[in-house]
Amino acid sequence: MNKWYRLGQKFNKKFTKEQFYEILRDNNYTNALGCIGKDFKEKDYKKLCEMVGIPEETEDKHYNYGERKYYFYQGYDKK
């Protein structure tokens, strides 16, 4: 998979669902209602990697709107 998927997996190992949603809300990754996630941007990748303590990966891929979030959540939900 891609770097966003692997990042989601690392978040799953480090944070509970409650902690995870709190991080999303506190860092403005959700909409005004706090329930629907915004798409991540490449600049967010560095910050998210630092949160889980992993080095950044480089990738030569262009993501369409919503793909980063989709892969991240897919990795996070995978058990």
Rank of each mutant, 00 (worst) to 15 (best):
M1Y: 10
M1V: 08
M1N: 13
N2G: 13
N2A: 08
K3F: 09
K3C: 12
W4E: 11
R6H: 14
R6F: 15
L7K: 04
L7S: 04
L7V: 03
K10W: 02
K10D: 06
F11K: 00
N12K: 15
K13V: 11
F15W: 03
K17C: 01
K17A: 13
E18V: 10
E18N: 05
Q19W: 00
Y21A: 02
Y21K: 00
E22D: 09
I23E: 02
L24Y: 03
L24G: 02
R25M: 01
R25S: 11
D26Y: 02
N27D: 12
N27C: 07
N27Y: 10
N27V: 05
N28I: 07
N28P: 00
N28W: 06
N28E: 09
Y29A: 00
Y29E: 05
T30K: 00
T30G: 00
N31H: 04
A32G: 00
A32N: 09
L33K: 09
G34Y: 04
C35H: 08
C35I: 12
C35L: 09
I36C: 06
G37M: 15
K38I: 06
D39I: 02
F40I: 01
F40M: 03
F40G: 04
F40D: 00
K41C: 10
K41L: 11
E42H: 08
E42A: 12
K43M: 08
Y45T: 05
K46V: 13
K46P: 02
K46F: 14
K46Q: 15
K47W: 09
K47N: 14
L48N: 05
C49Q: 05
C49H: 07
E50S: 15
V52D: 09
V52Y: 07
V52E: 10
V52T: 09
G53V: 13
I54S: 03
P55T: 10
P55F: 12
E56D: 05
E56R: 06
E56A: 11
E56G: 02
E57A: 13
E57M: 13
E57R: 09
T58C: 08
E59K: 05
D60P: 01
D60F: 07
K61I: 14
K61N: 10
K61Y: 14
Y63E: 12
N64E: 14
N64S: 15
Y65H: 14
G66T: 03
G66N: 13
G66I: 11
E67V: 08
E67K: 13
E67H: 06
R68E: 07
R68N: 07
R68W: 04
K69W: 08
K69Q: 11
Y71L: 09
F72G: 08
F72N: 04
Y73W: 11
Y73S: 04
Y73H: 12
Q74P: 02
Q74S: 15
G75T: 10
G75M: 05
G75D: 07
G75A: 06
Y76H: 01
D77H: 08
D77S: 12
D77Y: 11
K78Y: 10
